[in-house]
Design a protein around this nucleic acid. Sequence first.
DNA 1: TTCTTATTGTCTCACATTATAACAATATTC
DNA 2: GAATATTGTTATAATGTGAGACAATAAGAA
Lengths: 232, 232
Amino acid sequence: MKGANNKKFIPNLSYDCVIFGFNGEKLKILILEYHNTGLFALPGGYIKKEESLQEAVNKGVEERTGLKDVFLDQFQTFGKLNRTDPDATRSILQAKNKDLNEKQWMMERFITVGHYALINYENVNPKPDNLSDSIAWYDIKNVPQLMMDHNEIVDKALEVLRNNISEKLIGMNLLPAKFTMKQLQQVFEAILDETLRRTSFQRKMLSMDILERHEKLFEGKAHKAPYLYSFK
Amino acid sequence: MKGANNKKFIPNLSYDCVIFGFNGEKLKILILEYHNTGLFALPGGYIKKEESLQEAVNKGVEERTGLKDVFLDQFQTFGKLNRTDPDATRSILQAKNKDLNEKQWMMERFITVGHYALINYENVNPKPDNLSDSIAWYDIKNVPQLMMDHNEIVDKALEVLRNNISEKLIGMNLLPAKFTMKQLQQVFEAILDETLRRTSFQRKMLSMDILERHEKLFEGKAHKAPYLYSFK
DNA sequence: TTCTTATTGTCTCACATTATAACAATATTC
DNA sequence: GAATATTGTTATAATGTGAGACAATAAGAA
């Protein structure tokens, strides 16, 4: 006998999301830790039969971050036969005293659609899902071992993010509305994991004609105040 | 009562494939026409429960083209709620006198994983699938109206192909093993849909250090014979 | 007030890359 | 052997980028 959830979701299909944030210095991602199992995983979920894939992912990201209308990019679907791990799923469910019979469908083979999200780190208060104890920011250079193929998903997300860095939407979604040239450069450096030349970077950004210059930012520091910029 | 197929495949999930070929002049794709319906569609299919996504797509492309180990790139998963069209599917099945009861699962909502393939146009003899009358090459600039969201899938495939054109694998899979610089340029021009400067193109290709120069090709024309190249 | 300090905005110069044009090389035909 | 069409290479100008220098300036110190 299978439970109600079996009718609610599309079987054998899930989504996972690498949620990137920038704390002003380093690039981070959100990772869940499941109750009493020592298992870490990406935020993710299932797609209801009467909702679009994008709706499902949007809703999932909103539940973890509280943010609506987040920048989302779907980058790859992972469909290896043995990518999922029924034993791990079972222990996660057992640790929460779930009825395994009702959750039998979760132990089947799953194909997952990988997404990444870019969010403004500032006013986010991440919330764990109903199977996990905690959700926390991890430095992208210090991601723990994750369940199943989730490390591979993170690596691919970062690769795609690096390839798309020239799009203004990337920076726009990791920074506040107004930012200094230095902050923008720090975002690029965090994503690319390399230091950039200040003068070349500034010249390039200005020549792209995507920035609007605003008033100066007086930080109370003993040096010339930088201009604030926003994306056009 | 549902038929055997319902147990064989992952429900609600399919793949579609934009199969690109280059006839020496123009970029083309393979399109199926279903029996007695006037409906056109991309080659595609379903994923068996005990095979990987990639295996399924490889097998599907092999069935249509006879070619094994084709270059395949998975570029996007399409998950809108109403992207599929049960009425169209029904009429395709009816035109082939299929038992609709047994094929009920095919009328459900489907999420599809979009791929594109690059194949050497020369020695391919495309074969229609068991629901279609014909499979034929269509100029990429002259694609007919397709079922469901398949035109959108084609557009996206072309966009991704253009973005990936600098990878040597692109040209390698659309040309014979040995080719002239002019042929290579024609592939680029067909994909990008713009004319390129001969000298710049040649210098760029040679500087990338991906080509090996072989003997000259004597075509019996009244001008200097071009060198043949292959990818390293 | 004036000087110092740290950082920013801009400029310069050298160098690399690319666009554009010109020219030389060469299979074949006449 | 000259004419023709196309290819391979070189020359020159325009553009883009790396590296450094320098001037501007907000705040603190003298």
